[in-house]
Design a protein around this nucleic acid. Sequence first.
DNA 1: TATGAATGAGATTTCATTCAT
DNA 2: AATGAATGAAATCTCATTCAT
Lengths: 210, 210, 210, 210
Amino acid sequence: MEKQELSPKVLAAYKAVAELFMEGADLSSLTVSEITARAGIGKGTVYDYFANKEEMLAGALYHEMDVVCAELYKQLQKKRNLYEKMEQILVDMEEHMQEVGCAFKVLHLLMDNSQVSKQLRELFRRRKDNEIPLFALLRELIIEELGEDISLSGEDITYLVMNTVSRLICYAMYLNQDEAVRSFDTKTMRERLCRDICRDVEENRQPGED
Amino acid sequence: MEKQELSPKVLAAYKAVAELFMEGADLSSLTVSEITARAGIGKGTVYDYFANKEEMLAGALYHEMDVVCAELYKQLQKKRNLYEKMEQILVDMEEHMQEVGCAFKVLHLLMDNSQVSKQLRELFRRRKDNEIPLFALLRELIIEELGEDISLSGEDITYLVMNTVSRLICYAMYLNQDEAVRSFDTKTMRERLCRDICRDVEENRQPGED
Amino acid sequence: MEKQELSPKVLAAYKAVAELFMEGADLSSLTVSEITARAGIGKGTVYDYFANKEEMLAGALYHEMDVVCAELYKQLQKKRNLYEKMEQILVDMEEHMQEVGCAFKVLHLLMDNSQVSKQLRELFRRRKDNEIPLFALLRELIIEELGEDISLSGEDITYLVMNTVSRLICYAMYLNQDEAVRSFDTKTMRERLCRDICRDVEENRQPGED
Amino acid sequence: MEKQELSPKVLAAYKAVAELFMEGADLSSLTVSEITARAGIGKGTVYDYFANKEEMLAGALYHEMDVVCAELYKQLQKKRNLYEKMEQILVDMEEHMQEVGCAFKVLHLLMDNSQVSKQLRELFRRRKDNEIPLFALLRELIIEELGEDISLSGEDITYLVMNTVSRLICYAMYLNQDEAVRSFDTKTMRERLCRDICRDVEENRQPGED
DNA sequence: TATGAATGAGATTTCATTCAT
DNA sequence: AATGAATGAAATCTCATTCAT
């Protein structure tokens, strides 16, 4: 679905950025030295492929989100319904904040005013469908749930997607809190969220179809 | 409700940070010089009050969020019901992404891995109620709507707060899009969100009342 | 004759540049570290006073040429006539390629395409009389020799100045050769040049006076 | 008169350097990439023929000066006397600062302290006659003017050559000024210079021969 | 022989922080 | 208490040079 011909050096850099990012590094204090050391490539090599550090970071995160979402989508196909798929996403977010969490961190980053954020938005803007992979993924899941024959308008589906994304973000915020101060145990929280997401989707099912 | 005895120099610094932040400055590339120049104070003065730059930034944003939320709360008292209050918040977010938007930016910042974010989380952790003002504000609004005599559990209210936050985040995401690609016009979006927030709250009203 | 209020840090930097330059350093491979180490100031200090390295170098050389020419002019007043003054200049050029030589190196630099050269030309362009100090010095010497009452046109004097400069360049070229291959001994060379310079000046004395 | 067996790759590099140099590039900020890109050869190829960048630059300029002077000499043979030849040189310097100008730029470079200058001086030192082509050219012109049977000493001719070179350098300096501040129109300047150069040569003609 | 991807030393420049005033 | 000149650590980025192909 994407350009396949990424040089091994670029891939090494991307991998290093993704790793560091998932390990909790702060993007704005990540240095080129750190990244290239981790990637096992020369410091100057980065500048053979990118105009500057920010371009590399944006490229890495763009690529990472694509990869993570594609992988996630594949795994979610094993689940039977939206509830289970959402549950899986939430469990993933909790267990390995790494993989799925990374997609959310990138989503978060997109609302920054940092230089990396600007470059990243530019990358997404250039896509044919102009849609962030995470959004595209959720759109897909919702459509699958409603069935191909739904007559729901594009606007309504977009609203459902945004609604779902924002609930997931909320869950990320919840996970981000100290465990000590959480009012809910995580399982309860997950159940309520999945229930509400599914309810919102069901409500939008064509009334006449029922 | 807060320490009142803030030195005028500190207040000047806080004000400068808040202004720059609201004008869209990227926190991680904000310099002490920029801030003190804007504040009209000496560069060294900052270090008479704060251990380092990050502490100052965190202090400024912490303070700003308090002030903004207190002000917002006061203004919302003029509205008659939750729907109108929420509508007001959403309108504020659009019109002056500045003031209310600032609170969301801080909320956003809280999920970072930056040094400022860590210090800011620490500040909130030290609060007596350990609650972020924006959340406290929404909790207040919901309780007011449901009436004092509700028998809703704390958990339920917390969930309603999160649910509301997620709707607001949804709106922030919507506003963050290029106008060209938005599926809805802003007014429709606002109405849907307010409607859904109120419905979710109403659904949680005393079960026995049903 | 010039701005007197140069900060001691700036003066230290200027002095270091002048020293290194006179010791034969290549301007384009001179580093900020070398300069500030020699000047005994911090590396960053340079950037409190100059926008970049080139601006500092140009400033230093501009200042140095002024100082050297002023000093040279003072010393030449002790000599009785043009011949002796020229001889003194040539001896200076040989003995301390340092002081007078520096002025010639700057003159030379002015014909470069380097960034420093551009900045330096800009500095000279901003002068009120728009004249390079070395040229101004020679003009002065020639006018003194011819007496105040000369009716020589400005163009004629300018041509005499250039003629003199070319003789001095000739000597610089001579000194620049390996001693082994010089056709003349230095003293003979000096005498020829001084003789020719004076002859050219005398020839331009009022024709009617003859 | 020179090594003929220059590899086509080397010639391409030389040509590229000469072009860039004549277009006004600053030697010290010229990169190997720029040169090889212009030459249409691989970056590594340079190091099959030269020990380092400086050696290549020096080689290119050395070669260029030879070529330019040989070409210039050929063209000057069409002129009848020294005055016309000098005039031609001066006109060339003005019109296409490129070709003849290049020889002067190299001459200028020879008085630098840069690495390239050192290597270039070394190259000239290894010549059988140890003479810079431009000097040799002028020596030839002067001897032609004075006639083969002159009994002028080598020293006297060398002095005349240096005198001529320095006048030409002076003209280059004059051309290098902003047109706005030149005291003379170019034609007048040229005439005076040619007149004085010829006069200086004539004066040295054997008096007894007259 | 020729290439150009890769390297990393080293340059410029920024900016948080200190401290004499 | 307040200042801002001075510092130097550390970051980004360049580019001469190497070397596997």
